[in-house]
Write a protein that binds this DNA or RNA. Structure first.
Lengths: 215, 215
DNA sequence: ACCTGAACACCGTTCAAGT
DNA sequence: ACCTGAACACCGTTCAAGT
C-alpha cells in the first residue's frame, strides 16, 4: 500500500519513531504495533529504537501527545468562538473528530488520561475560561468540561469499537420482545451505528441544554 | 493473598474458567491475565483450558457477559422506578457501579460494545420502554440512552485509568497561567479525581435536565 | 556513535503423549 | 476423557559485537 522510495532515509529520532508508530497504528491497529513491526516501518532493525526511546510505553505516550496536539490544532482552526456554547460544542466535536481520524489509537486517550491532558492543558484552560467568562460557577464549569469530554470519549470509543467489530448481529431477547412488541426494532437500532453523527450531536446538545439551565 | 484449601478442586468448565478470569483481572489487572497465569489460578496446566474454550477471545467475551449480567442485577435491585428520570439515572449509576467494582475489566465493555450488549438487551429495552411510556419520541429516547451509557463509560474509564495512573502530577501551562491567572488551580483540579462521585452525578443531572426539556 | 544478532523470559496456541 | 510437556511463532528488552 505505502511504498517508500526514500533511498536516503532520515536519521532515527524520538519524533520520527513516535510519528511512525501512529502511522502503523492507524494503518494496522494498536495490537499490531510491535517493536519489530515498527522497525520495519522505519527501515531499521527494531531494537535500534531503544537507542532513542526508553521503551514502548514512552512511544505510546508520544502518540498520546500527538493526538492531543491534533485536538488543539482542530480547536484553533474552529475558533474563535462567539459563545460558551459554541466553544464547548466545538470542544466535544473536535475531540470526536480526532477519534474518527485515529480510531485505532483513540483508546490510548481513555487510559492514562492524566498524562495525555498534561499535553493539552492550554486548550482545556481556554474552554474553562470561556465558561467562567459566561458566568458559570467554577464547579459547574469544571463539571461541564469533564462531562463533555467524557461523553465524547465514551461515544467515540464505542463507535470505533463497533466499526471494527464485525461480529454477529446481536440476537433478540425473546421475553422482552413478546411483552413489549414495539421495542424489537428500537433495540435493534441500539447497537448498530445508524446515524451515529446525528446521535452524537443530539446527546451533546442535551448536555449543553442542561448546562444552559444552570446559568 | 488468596490461599485455596480446595484439595478436591471442581472440574474445569467454561463457566469456572470465565469466573476465574474475572477474579484474576480484578486482582492483578487485564494485562496480567495470561493463559498460563489463568491455569495457575485454576490449579491446572493452562493449556488445559483449550479443552473447554476456543481461546482467549472467548474467555474475554465471557467476562463481558458477566459484567453485563451484574449490571442487570444491579438494575433489578435498584428498581422498580417511579419515573423515567429515576430509571435513567439508575441506568447510569449502576453502569458506573459495575466499573467501580471491576475497574480493570471495565475497558472490555468499551471495546466490543455490541457483543457486550447482546447479553443485556432486556435491561436496555426496559429503560427504553420507560422513556417511551413517558412520551419521548423514539429517536430522542434512543439518543438519551446512548448518551447516558456513553457518558458513564467515558467517565468511569477515565476514573479507573486515573486511579491506576500514578504518574507525575501534570505540569502547569505557563503561557495560559499568566494570561488567565485565576485558572491555575482550576486546571489543577481537572485531571485529579477530587470528588469524582459528585462530578459524575452533576454531569448525569445535566444530561437528564437537557432530556427533560425535550419532553 | 549508531545499528545488528543473538539471547532471555515471556506470550497464545497446537498437538502428540501420557493416564 | 481429560490433562501434560514440548514445541512453534511470536512478544519486549538487553547487550556484546560489529562498523
Amino acid at each position: 500500500m505505502s511504498s517508500k522510495p526514500d533511498t536516503q532515509r532520515p536519521p532515527l529520532s524520538a519524533d520520527r519513531i513516535v510519528a511512525t508508530a501512529l502511522d502503523v497504528i492507524d494503518a494496522e491497529g494498536l495490537e499490531q504495533l510491535s517493536i519489530r513491526r515498527l522497525g520495519d516501518a522505519l527501515g531499521v532493525q527494531g531494537m535500534a529504537v531503544y537507542r532513542h526511546v526508553s521503551g514502548k510505553d514512552q512511544i505510546l505516550d508520544g502518540v498520546r501527545r500527538l493526538l492531543v496536539e491534533e485536538f488543539g490544532a482542530r480547536m484553533r482552526a474552529a475558533g474563535p468562538f462567539d459563545s460558551w456554547r459554541e466553544h464547548l460544542r466545538a470542544f466535544g466535536t473536535c475531540y470526536r473528530d480526532v477519534g474518527r481520524a485515529h480510531p485505532h489509537a483513540f483508546g490510548l486517550l481513555a487510559t492514562h488520561a492524566v498524562t495525555a491532558w498534561s499535553h493539552g492543558r492550554a486548550t482545556a484552560a481556554a474552554a474553562l475560561s470561556a465558561l467562567l467568562d459566561a458566568g458559570f460557577d467554577e464547579d459547574i464549569a469544571i463539571g461541564a468540561e469533564r462531562t463533555v469530554i467524557r461523553y465524547a470519549i465514551g461515544f467515540t470509543m464505542i463507535d470505533a469499537a463497533n466499526a471494527a467489530d464485525v461480529s454477529e448481529p446481536p440476537a433478540l431477547p425473546n421475553d422482552i420482545a413478546q411483552t413489549h412488541p414495539s421495542l424489537g426494532r428500537l433495540v435493534q437500532t441500539l447497537s448498530p451505528l445508524g446515524g451515529a453523527e446525528e446521535l452524537f450531536h443530539l446527546g451533546l446538545d442535551l448536555i449543553l441544554d442542561g448546562l444552559a439551565s444552570r446559568l
